[in-house]
Design a binder for these strands. Structure first.
Lengths: 213, 213
DNA sequence: GTCTATACTTCGATAGAC
DNA sequence: GTCTATCGAAGTATAGAC
């Protein structure tokens, strides 16, 4: 074997994820994906039925993986506060390992799930569900102020996705000498968001009966 | 005139905004835009040089308008707290009048401004700049806790954009019987986000010298 | 300003040899 | 499993009459 560090299907998936993230479903070109993967189009269509099937495979995988990890946090024995901290940190870590994730997520919201099937949509929906479950428990235990669980999800997750997805355009603004937006690093942003969420969710009447181990 | 409630260029712009929001730059079809506008392609190309020119016109307009309104709030005599409240309310109002805005914004972040020229990029950059200015003042006056101004922008704006842009996909999830995510209305979400931001930004040592009129 | 018809290009997908 | 060559559909843009 002339040094395929990964098998073809994996190389195709990786190339496709990058292409879909950068250009979107319609803007992505099958030729470019094949070339980046070091295969030709026929090979690509041999492993995947169609451009759409390739897209769904990628999104299904990433949503299921992220969903599993979120559910693991939600089901852990941590306090709601600690769970929220972990969720925010998890997303940042997850994006470090799957840098295509934020752009794809932003695009798919805007696309209204147009290219997805039921299963993939369901996998995507696990994200808000898991976070909402954590918040709901926190509110029930009076550790969080009364707040709509889904609203809390939308206050917590989009910032980190937007911030990470926005790095390239901030760099473009700077490179093209349009403007320099001095932005802090991902780790600092994570800490800032974690603290903001602690403050935003904290029950005004201090948490009752601290029954931690 | 056989009842063109608006002139052709305006009708084309409106149709194009809807198409670009729903399908993205690459997914948008000039034929569809022309048909929705009630003109033909030749007419469209008579008024606008190209698909790209049409796109830039729309984004330039909407970013400049939003930027002006944000700067008006930033330059007003309100307290930083009140300014933040107004900014959040403004975005919601703005989206009510320009329903294509959230999807286009999400897409353009993911696109890294690929289809934009310097002017349009600069107009887009006014949004974070205005908000960051407000936060910076609030921190300087010790009314806000010490927080990175751009980070505060990313904690404040993406939630409302995401929430509003996500309404269609939530409806799709519900219509296709995948899942019902019970979400509160836009007004309730605005109030929730406003309160969350007040809590997240509040200086721990109560605001000093309340010197309001 | 408005239309019909069409030129030119690109793209997703496949046929068929090896 | 892998390749070259190519088909047919769809897309942007324009020519030219009115």
């Amino acid at each position: 074997m002339p040094r395929p560090s990964r098998a073809s299907p994996d190389r195709i998936l990786a190339a496709a994820a990058a292409e879909f993230a950068r250009r979107g479903y319609s803007g992505a070109r099958v030729d470019r994906i094949a070339r980046r993967a070091g295969v030709n189009k026929a090979m690509l269509y041999y492993h995947f039925r169609s451009k759409q099937a390739l897209y769904r495979t990628i999104l299904g995988r990433v949503f299921r993986l992220a969903g599993e990890r979120l559910q693991a946090i939600a089901s852990s024995g941590l306090t709601p506060d600690a769970k929220i901290d972990r969720v925010i940190a998890l997303i940042a870590t997850f994006v470090r390992d799957h840098d295509f994730f934020p752009a794809i997520m932003l695009r798919e919201i805007a696309e209204r799930g147009a290219h997805l099937d039921r299963d993939t949509l369901a996998a995507m929906a696990v994200l808000p569900q898991s976070v909402a479950r954590i918040v709901q428990e926190g509110v029930a235990e009076r550790r969080f102020r009364p707040i709509d669980p889904l609203a809390a999800y939308f206050i917590m997750l989009p910032p980190i996705l937007f911030y990470l997805a926005g790095a390239p355009i901030r760099k473009a603004l700077s490179d093209r000498h349009v403007l320099n937006l001095p932005s802090i690093g991902p780790e600092a942003f994570v800490r800032c968001l974690q603290q903001s969420m602690r403050l935003a969710l904290a029950s005004t009447a201090q948490a009752p009966a601290e029954e931690q181990t």
